[in-house]
Design a binder for these strands. Sequence first.
DNA 1: TGACGTCAAGATCCG
DNA 2: CGGATCTTGACGTCA
Length: 418
Amino acid sequence: MRIGYACLTVGVQGADMRSCVMKNASEERLLEIIASNLQSLDHILDYNIENGIKLFRISSDLIPFGSSPINTLKWWEHFEPQFLKLGEKIRNNSIRVSLHPGQYTVINSPDEAVVLRAIKDLDYHTKVLDSLGMGPENKIILHVGGVYQDKESAIARFINTYHKLEDSVKQRLVIENDDKSYTVEDVLDISKKLGVPVVFDNLHNYANPSPHDVTEEDWIDECCKTWQEQDGPQKIHYSQQDYGKKAGSHSASIRIKEFMEFYHKLNRYDLDIMLEVKDKNLSAVKCSNCISTDKKMIILEQEWSRYKYSVLEKSHNNYSTIRNLLKDKEKYPVVSFYRLVEDALGQNESIGNSINAAMHVWGYLKDIAAESEKKKFLKMIDDYQQGKVVLPVIKNYLRRLSDKYHREYLLSSYYFIL
DNA sequence: TGACGTCAAGATCCG
DNA sequence: CGGATCTTGACGTCA
């Protein structure tokens, strides 16, 4: 079983995806951005490899305006060596990649022009996978599209357009239930007619359930039947509701207790789970560590080094509890560990705790920082205590100093992003 | 016509 | 000037 995340990372150096607006999309600008994005993808892959993440959705923005006529570059020729190298890295590390055109790629629209653009967009996504040399188990996930007051005709148009797609596209295409229009049952019906695999999305199914009362596990088993040998293992999307927001909104982080309940209910290990969550790689590493059969304390210690200052900032109590928890090197108390981390992060910071955490971080800078920087930092702490300055200002300053003095240990910490 | 969702770019404001 | 904060853009559907 592989756990993955979508498109972007948080807290990973040199892994940002760049873009530009249409009016600035000159050939030079596009070339520069594509080169930068391919470099970032390389860094993301390195991060994934180091952290045991073997499932990743590549951002559709890898090539800006990849399917638009304003991008006339033959980027696949221009960057052929880079693509080949990236593809090699992906395959050598048994990583499975995917791509997911957004809600605006609609092949069942009554508007012909929209459909033509959507087909071009699918061709673009296919070209990315082809350039990487990725086989048909590396999928392109698509939603069915709009309803236009007549679902039956809309589905008929989907099927009609599907038949017109290139084989190289069809080999990769999988369809997913969405949060508004097409339930998992709708999508399974379409799959029966086309033989196209179905990705089950649990949160979409929650927001837009099928009329029949079927459990998530049973839908997942149903969807499993749509995956053939050449498609690779079944893939599902898993996300959790942000309770502060409307139905279907993704949570900030994957709540591990809830995930483990889902995982145990599933009772299957032959499928891949793509997480859709705001903290991206953080939750992927968390979930991956929790289901890992490779139970090494060193992995938890590494995670602790990343979370510790954020925990300290919120709860001294949890900080101490976790330190004790990690003392026994023979154990692997992974779920308890993450639950304590989550519990701490859910609390409000106090001035005392956040100063304590900031001073811990400062400890890695105080010997190298200039006298003026030391003065400035201590003044900030003082101002913060008196309510003259907000915490993010202090943390930003610490981040800049960490950057300036190349404090890698601090830069890979989540202190600056949580 | 605006909301929807997503993210960075671009624009503007601030000290 | 650099940094923080607000607005725009790019896509198609639906009310």
